[in-house]
């Protein structure tokens, strides 16, 4: 099974637009996983039905029983997350600050603190309009388990791919290089880097490439809006060449890109044939890099 992950370092370079286009072009042959769990957008283009909904319980959060609490505040003394305050002679725990380490409940002399499972989000299995299945999620507001939710989404996608005999999973990742990104890279077979010609995007690309290297995953790159600054596009191409990362395609700045998103269509479906042509060619390059033959 091949797992193709789309990431970028910098946000807003076009990850979701590219990943959703790949999903459309792969059609029934690929399971789709939206792993940008705290700003998930793929559903806006792929019309999921959310046929299966699941709660994502992860970690715990500490709760004080006022009936037993004597206000000794020993819990406050040991909490490293400033989650405990005193109010009216009782300890109060801020569920947003609490990281669920459980230390307070262990030191409480009155056993007044319990650890309850934390509802950290929801995840869904959907039929989508490509004729395939998508696993996606919504991280709870203020939840701090994005890496674990990403892992859950990916694992479910793998299970479904196995059940349905699919050889391909397309993953939309998040910006940055932290825990959700690291989680989306685990077990990936190929990384598609989406970048754009700005110094910021290049700087961020270099960091995310170094991270991906640590996992020894092969990569390919897409330069979006390459004509905004051709000089920096050239710099990016030099960097890619030296890093031995093939350039999968260059897309020009085109307002149709935005129009198609506003209309709820992937750019692969754009009426503008240049735009849809470039993304098709890009997908074919990804398939070729991965030795995949897809029957669409």
């Amino acid at each position: 099974m091949k797992e193709i992950v789309v990431i970028s370092g910098k946000g807003g370079t076009g990850k979701t637009s590219v990943a959703a286009s790949f999903a459309l072009l792969a059609g029934k042959s690929a399971i789709v996983a939206d792993c940008d769990v705290d700003a998930a957008d793929m559903h806006l283009l792929l019309s999921p039905d959310r046929a299966e909904r699941h709660k994502f319980l992860s970690g715990t959060v500490a709760v004080v029983d006022n009936g037993s609490c004597t206000g000794c505040m020993e819990c406050q003394a040991i909490c490293r997350f400033d989650a405990v305050t005193e109010k009216g002679g009782f300890a109060i725990i801020d569920p947003v600050k609490c990281e669920g380490c459980g230390y307070c409940s262990r030191v409480c002399p009155e056993n007044a603190i319990s650890n309850i499972p934390d509802l950290a989000g929801k995840w869904y299995i959907s039929s989508i309009r490509t004729g395939s299945t998508m696993v996606h999620a919504k991280l709870g507001i203020g939840a701090d388990n994005s890496g674990k939710l990403v892992a859950r989404v990916k694992n479910e996608a793998r299970k479904i791919a196995e059940e349905q005999g699919k050889e391909l999973i397309i993953v939309d990742g998040s910006p940055g290089i932290g825990c959700p990104v690291i989680s989306s890279l685990s077990g990936a077979s190929y990384v598609v880097l989406v970048t754009e010609p700005s110094l910021s995007a290049l700087h961020d690309l270099i960091r995310v490439v170094e991270l991906t290297r640590n996992f020894s995953i092969p990569m390919g790159a897409v330069i979006n809006k390459y004509d905004i600054n051709r000089e920096i596009t050239a710099q990016i191409e030099v960097f890619l060449r030296e890093a031995n990362i093939p350039l999968l395609s260059r897309m020009e700045w085109n307002e149709e890109f935005v129009h198609s998103i506003v209309a709820g269509r992937t750019i692969a479906e754009s009426e503008n044939t240049t735009l849809s042509g470039v993304i098709r060619e890009c997908w074919e390059n990804v398939l070729q890099q991965n030795d995949i033959t897809v029957k669409v």
Partner: peptide
């Protein structure tokens, strides 16, 4: 701030 709405953003906004 970082993008998104998970814990790093909460920390900055907080």
């Amino acid at each position: 701030s970082p993008p998104g709405s998970s814990c790093p953003v909460m920390e900055v906004v907080g």
